[in-house]
Design a protein around this nucleic acid. Structure first.
Lengths: 242, 242
DNA sequence: TGACTCGTATTTGTTGGACAATTAAGTTCC
DNA sequence: GGAACTTAATTGTCCAACAAATACGAGTCA
């Protein structure tokens, strides 16, 4: 990747809209505004920032896109915190050229999160967690269609991450959902989910239940690598294979 | 995809801008546009979508906020993928007090990333990496002011994560930067950075150089816990201590 | 008094037009 | 052929107008 030229990183002149966004951020900080509070009206913001209404509106669009404010007619802009949801929206754009490297990076990240976190998993796991995991996994057998099965597969891993009781990690995992779903689906049939995936998950749960640290890491690593192996066989980038 | 649970969720009438955003997404998909490709001009988009220029511009602002396009005068909109950077921008808004739980979650995440990744670190580390780490750490001794020292401290950890050569992990680490900086600064003086922090970092580097897996984990874990210990003594939330 | 209806004023949503700023592309000149 | 200049196309900002939604208050009635 020739991105090595980024050290120069062209200094782009900040537009008025960017300035207004920065000033809005400062205004929120200074006034100590938090979720539920109202922002001034567009007209007032125009006067405060000395910008036209269109400029203020474009700035407000950015805040909305960030999931930081929610705007309703007549009511105005209310501060919210839907940033994680907005982050999901961001990834609904198929700008993708998700490069092969991105896939392998995400996969590596998953390994780190799910395999290396064995200590914390075994430390925090409860009977209820195990029960949930088995219930979710059993739904793999009755899933209708690949998309549905992939969703269940993802849900299993999300639930497993959930035992860490760490929202930051859970959010990040959710952030990677679109890519992970592609990895999960690649090279699989519904039949594969019913047999291989299901049993691999069961083996993972068994290892957890036995509090077997080594077995857990082995089973999970094998499972993740099995799911990723197809990327070496089939080409998930038929259009970009240049 | 049936958007699942969104059926209850208040049905807000989608604005024209939202429609245009959706149409742009479709347009990108249909034409198979990827990073580096150009979008039509604003005027053309107005004709295609039957919307006014301001509306198209507000939609384009959203794409820009998502980090999906980069717009330059005369040149037009180019598709890029700076979504991770945009996600970081999102979290620069202090719309809510960072809760104690968020702090401990982030700290737990750091432990997982930096302590549990020992295998991958030792596997990928090069002489150049170690050289860089020592150089960065030495700057802790000459840092001017706490903010500067904290930046150097963060840079050290970022550089360490960088040896994994995994952009996804690096991006996520950058995502947490605002919170991590707060953790780093808490309860520290410039003197602390010059003594404790510096030597702890050196010990970590030494362990890496000796390829000593156990020592690395011990040193890193101790270091991270030392930085976090102050949270039990001092109250970083004077305004929210209810 | 309390509840309901309705009109009005306020605020955001969308449109159209104008001019400034930037710069890729063509043109001229040597 | 190359450098300097001109032009035209495109985005950036501003202004003004009207449409759409709705909070608020006045008025009405029981």
């Amino acid at each position: 990747m020739p991105a090595s030229t980024s050290d120069i990183e062209e200094i782009e002149p900040r537009s008025v809209v960017d300035d207004v966004v920065a000033q809005m951020r400062d205004l929120i900080s200074e006034r100590g505004l938090t979720v539920g509070d109202q922002l001034p009206t567009e007209k007032e913001l125009c006067e405060i920032f000395g910008a036209s209404r269109n400029t203020v509106r474009e700035a407000m669009r950015i805040l909305k896109a960030y999931g930081v404010v929610k705007v309703r007619q007549k009511i105005g802009a209310t501060i919210v915190d839907n940033r994680m949801s907005s982050a999901m929206e961001m990834f609904s754009f198929n700008v993708m050229d998700i490069s092969r490297k991105t896939f392998s990076d995400i996969q590596g990240f998953r390994c780190l999160l799910e395999v290396s976190s064995v200590e914390e998993v075994l430390e925090n796991i409860t009977e209820k967690d195990i029960e949930d995991l088995r219930a979710i996994n059993s739904k793999l057998l009755t899933a209708s269609g690949i998309e549905n099965a992939a969703e269940q597969d993802f849900l299993f891993h999300t639930r497993l991450i959930g035992v860490l009781r760490n929202k930051a990690i859970l959010d990040v995992y959710g952030l990677m959902k679109p890519v992970i779903l592609k990895i999960i689906q690649n090279g699989k049939t519904r039949r594969t989910f019913e047999t291989d995936t299901y049993h691999e998950h069961e083996a993972v749960i068994d290892a957890i239940e036995a509090r077997d640290r080594i077995a857990y890491q082995y089973r999970m690593k094998t499972h993740l690598e099995a799911g990723y192996a197809h990327f070496n066989e089939t080409d998930p980038f038929p259009e970009t294979s240049k």
